[in-house]
Design a protein around this nucleic acid. Sequence first.
DNA 1: ACTGCGATGTCCT
DNA 2: GGACATCGCAGTT
Length: 203
Amino acid sequence: MDFSQPELLLPFSFYNRPVLHVAKDLLGKILLRKQNGKILSGKIVETEAYHETNDPSCHAHRGKTRRNAVMFGPPGHLYVYFTYGMHYCMNVVAEAEGIAAAVLIRALEPLSGIELMKSRRDEKFKEKDLCNGPAKLCQAFAITTKENGISLLENKIWIADSELVSSKQIAVSPRIGISSGQELPWRFYLKDNHFVSGKKNGK
DNA sequence: ACTGCGATGTCCT
DNA sequence: GGACATCGCAGTT
């Protein structure tokens, strides 16, 4: 299956919806990036939703700043931030312009460009360890703050439609690494998928 | 298997 | 000055 066909590119209307719907519906979709004449791609298997309202762990909860400004912009854009002095994380902006909400992409199942991903991570890693964490997949796809704010509606970095995922295959849990306030069940992942984050042995 | 911790830049109080 | 939407290594059971 060639997911890079332009007809499969998810449209503006996909992102212009409540962030919890976008987070859930991104499961099973394909993240793609064209680079060095190659196509990097991976299936999204784990996401988390963040919203400025009633969510103290959202970067935008205290209003707009230089860092989080992209979250307040139109949906269908990339919000990339730098954290812990060495890691990048990528989010997909959702909901209407003016409302800050985004979906953190936490894990991918690599599909193509795997050699390039390995060269950017470390040759020693197995396939399942290339993108099973938010900072890992950014490293594998070479996504940094240079990519902050770019549109997902053009074919540089984009997301493609794929087969429908039944709600029976989706699991829900509290988000990971959150300390402030009482945590919400806003993490979604594909049940029994071996590429979800935090698994040491593939199961 | 699980636990602790160092790395290290940017934002925010 | 402290916290941070993390990761990988070292040490222990």
